[in-house]
């Protein structure tokens, strides 16, 4: 069971660390603090996202567009809009369960077991990746492994190791933009140390008070192809989302 730190303590830590980082760049910050800031930057009560996945396989590329309603970190609802074959396919995630609905069969299927490792729409993302709903700081211990530049952005390099429990990636290495608290590059590893996936952020935009990666290349290292480009077309933070959307009835 993962314990969450009390909110006042977290806020105090974030505020304190933010000030400390600005004042003392020579002194590497605590890895957990950097990770906490990453979580805070991306976290929101609710958001509605319209996005495209450009999947570049061995036989060419195709684009899948979708709209997602996300509430907290445990509830999300996605509807695929295009191409016509995928249009109307819906996915609902509630805590640790994921259902998918396909209009052609009019069936709602619980994605579980080994199916969670299957690719989403043929992309380099798996359902397991989509299921990851907890803050990184709750899943991993982080240490600062160094400083590097990604493009022209100075970054902290963080080595993350699992705190235990069932987790898709045992260790990760992330490059966090020092000033914007955004992960610009990531490598995800299996328990054996084998590299499984990489991500590379191509574009970051300011939306409201946050820095949001809007173009990301996901690459499943075990698959042939050139990876999947995930493009955020629009993102609305703290949007009003009706509760009934997060029920199985809304899938049909």
């Amino acid at each position: 069971m993962i314990r969450h730190a009390p909110l006042p303590f977290l806020l105090a830590a974030v505020v304190g660390l933010a000030g400390a980082v600005g004042a003392a760049t020579a002194q590497p910050p605590d890895g957990a603090a950097v990770l906490r800031r990453v979580d805070e930057n991306m976290g929101a009560d609710s958001k509605v996202t319209t996005s495209e996945m450009i999947i570049r396989g061995r036989r060419g590329s195709r684009t899948v567009s979708s709209r997602s309603w996300i509430q907290g970190r445990s509830r999300s609802f996605t509807e695929y809009l295009d191409p016509p074959r995928e249009k109307g396919t819906k996915m609902l995630k509630l805590d640790d369960q994921l259902w998918t609905y396909t209009p052609a069969s009019d069936r709602t299927i619980l994605i579980s077991g080994h199916m969670l490792r299957q690719s989403v729409m043929g992309s380099d993302l798996s359902y397991e990746d989509m299921m990851e709903d907890q803050r990184l700081v709750a899943l991993y211990d982080a240490v600062i492994a160094g400083e590097e530049r990604v493009g022209d952005r100075p970054c902290w390099v963080l080595a993350l190791s699992s705190r235990g429990g069932e987790i898709a990636y045992h260790t990760r290495k992330i490059w966090v933009d020092k000033a914007r608290d955004v992960v610009l590059r990531e490598e995800r590893f299996a328990k054996s140390g084998k590299l499984l996936k990489t991500t590379e952020v191509l574009d970051v935009q300011r939306m409201k008070e946050r820095w949001v990666p809007t173009r990301v290349i996901f690459k499943d290292v075990l698959k042939n192809g050139e990876g999947t480009e995930f493009v955020v077309k629009a993102m609305e933070f703290n949007a009003e989302i009706p509760d009934h959307l997060f029920t199985k009835a809304s899938l049909r």
């Binding site: 999947i55 074959r85 729409m121």
Partner: peptide
């Protein structure tokens, strides 16, 4: 019977 499989592009297929 519903077949759950993958298309040649890797998408999930649920077909009756």
């Amino acid at each position: 019977a519903t077949l759950i499989s993958a298309t040649m592009h890797g998408s999930l297929v649920v077909q009756n």
